[in-house]
């Protein structure tokens, strides 16, 4: 068993008086794909956002690739390059082309010269099969294409782990397949991934482990067959039953 790339221990998060994460432990091994499911408001997004410190946890510890993410001395901007993140709403920069979106951090953060940054950006776009859309602006791309550009923007920095927060939830059904395909290929290339999603088919096919969250806690986790086929906890059963009726 390989070492954990992501290790969160006893993570708590309060938003004012709201206690959203109540002591979450999550370890993700290298090359593992962990799927996080749970009802709305259970804290899935908050957990992901704590992992790269988009949200400041109130308590607990988080290490990613050996870096203590919560240590004040950690260069957070450097650490974040090892953690790619993909959002439900894509969040592409509308004033830049697909290529510009992918190249921005390569130039400004990694300091590559323009030509090299663009060459690397092009390679990343190729990996999501969008090299021919490099010159298009986000407004000229379909939702599925935009999300694949967002994936390219993240993987161009060669992260050690990728976080996906409901990457297909904002897409029309016919566009979901392309994004899942890109994620599947990423997984095959050996990327470590944490995915929050309702795509149960994808979870069954691709996940190593499914984590069920409710009320700010991890209620149950295990291989997809076990969680979907034979959940042990009442709350898990209720949730699985609910989504399978859809």
């Amino acid at each position: 068993m390989s070492a954990a790339i992501v290790e969160a221990r006893g993570v708590h998060k309060h938003f004012g008086g709201l206690h959203v994460l109540k002591g979450v432990d999550l370890a993700v091994r290298e090359r593992e794909l962990v799927f996080v499911i749970g009802p709305s408001g259970s804290g899935k997004s908050t957990l992901l956002r704590c992992l790269n410190r988009l949200e400041e946890p109130s308590d607990g510890s988080i290490t990613v690739d050996g870096i203590d993410m919560l240590d004040r001395r950690t260069d957070i901007n450097k650490a974040r390059q090892r953690i790619g993140m993909v959002f439900q709403s894509f969040n592409l920069y509308p004033h830049m082309t697909a290529l510009g979106n992918v190249a921005l951090a390569l130039r400004r953060v990694q300091g590559l010269p323009r030509a090299e940054a663009e060459a690397r950006a092009r390679q990343a776009l190729e990996r999501v099969h969008l090299a021919d859309r490099a010159g298009h602006y986000p407004g000229q791309l379909s939702g599925g294409q935009q999300q694949r550009v967002a994936i390219a923007r993240a993987i161009a920095l060669e992260p050690r782990v990728m976080l996906f927060d409901e990457p297909t939830s904002a897409l029309d059904p016919e566009l979901v397949g392309g994004v899942l395909q890109a994620m599947r290929e990423l997984r095959e290339s050996g990327m470590t991934m944490v995915v929050v999603s309702h795509e149960m088919g994808f979870a069954r096919a691709a996940a190593d482990r499914v984590v069920f969250m409710d009320g700010g806690r991890i209620v149950e986790e295990g291989p997809p067959e076990a969680i979907f086929g034979n959940p042990q906890q009442e709350r898990t059963r209720a949730f699985i039953g609910q989504i399978e009726r859809h």
Partner: peptide, 14 residues
């Protein structure tokens, strides 16, 4: 939108 800054910060921009 806030997501714009978040996306940028996620890739290591200050």
């Amino acid at each position: 939108p806030r997501g714009q800054v978040e996306a940028a910060r996620c890739t290591g921009l200050t």
